[in-house]
Design a protein around this nucleic acid. Structure first.
Lengths: 154, 154
DNA sequence: TTAATCATGGATATTACATATCCACAATAG
DNA sequence: CTATTGTGGATATGTAATATCCATGATTAA
C-alpha cells in the first residue's frame, strides 16, 4: 500500500500557494523549478486539483494556478483525494461467498466483519487527514521560509 | 493507494483457521479450494505469514498450516503487515530541501509538517487495525458458518 | 523402505499502474 | 499578432502485483 510520489508534490505545491497573496498565480513551470520535479508530469497533477475544485487555472501570460478557496477550507484529505482518488485501499470481493466453502446468502445478512474493520481503519485515516487544513500547515512554518517563498514566487 | 488483493485472502484464511481445533491443520490446497483462489499464489502469501510468526507450517501428509498463537493475540494489523509490509504509504523525500526553492538546513530544524500529518494518519490507521483480534472476528460470526467450516475443513 | 503428501524457495511470465515525456490545441495578456 | 500558459490526448518506461511452474526437502502412512 503506497501513495504516489506525486502526493508529496501537490501537498507542497498547495502549501506554497497558500503562502502567496490572494490574487497571485504560479505557473507549473515555476513550481517545477521550485521543487526540482518534472514539469509536464507536475502539470498533470495540478490539473487534477483543478478538476477537484481546489485550484483554479488560468491560461495566457501572467496566468497559472491559485487556490480556489480559503486556506482554512482546504484539508490535507482534500489534496490527497484529488491526487490519488478516494478509493478504499481494501476492496471486499465477498470472498466468504466464493469457492467451495461459500457461505449461503442467508448467512450473510450482516456485512463482512473483516471488510468492516478495514473500512473503519480507512475512515480513521481520512478523519485524521481531514482535521488538518492548509492554514494550519502554513501557520507552523518559520517566517524565514515564508519570506523566501514570497520573494521567489510572489 | 491500495492493498494487494491477497490481503483479503489471508484475512479470511486466518479467520477460517481461527475456527478450527487447536491441533488441526489446513493445507494450502484446501484453502485454495475453499475460497476459489489460485493455489500456488495463495501458498506464497501463507509463507509470508509463517515468516512473520503468525502461522506454523508443517510438511508431509496431514501437514499444513495452523495459527502459531492464540486468536486473541493475533490482530488484523499483524495480518496486514505480514502480507503487505509495514511501510508508511507516504514517503517524505524532503521536497522542501530540493530544487530552486530549497529551504536552508537551518530552517528545517523541525520535521516536515506535511510528513508529520501523513504519519499521524497512518498511525491512526494502524491503531484501528491493531485494536481488533481474530478472536473478536470469529465471535461475531453466525454459528451456521462456523459449523460449516468445521465440517468442511476440520 | 517406499510412496504419497505437503511446504518452501526460485525462476519466470503477465498485467496493471505509476512515472514521465511530447505534442496539438485553446485561451489570454500585452 | 505573438508570446505565454493551461488542457487534453497519445505514447513510452519502469516497477510492483498477480499468477504459474518446478525442484527440493521434510514428513507421514503403508
Amino acid at each position: 500500500m503506497k501513495l504516489p510520489e506525486t502526493s508529496e508534490w501537490v501537498l507542497h505545491a498547495a502549501a506554497v500557494m497558500a503562502q502567496l497573496p490572494d490574487d497571485a498565480t504560479v505557473s507549473a513551470a515555476q513550481l517545477s523549478e521550485h521543487f526540482g520535479v518534472p514539469g509536464p508530469y507536475l502539470s498533470k497533477q495540478l490539473a487534477k486539483l483543478v478538476r477537484a475544485g481546489i485550484l483554479t487555472g488560468s491560461t495566457g501570460p501572467r496566468g497559472g494556478f491559485r487556490l480556489a478557496r480559503r486556506t482554512d477550507r482546504i484539508s490535507i484529505l482534500d489534496l490527497v483525494i484529488a491526487v490519488d482518488g478516494g478509493a478504499d485501499p481494501y476492496v471486499c470481493r465477498e470472498l466468504r461467498q466464493q469457492g467451495r466453502g461459500a457461505a449461503r446468502p442467508e448467512d450473510c445478512t450482516r456485512p463482512c466483519a473483516l471488510a468492516a474493520v478495514m473500512r473503519d481503519a480507512h475512515e480513521a485515516w481520512r478523519s485524521s487527514l481531514a482535521a488538518v487544513t492548509l492554514a494550519e500547515i502554513v501557520a507552523g512554518l518559520p517566517d524565514t521560509i515564508i519570506d523566501k517563498n514570497r520573494r521567489l514566487l510572489g
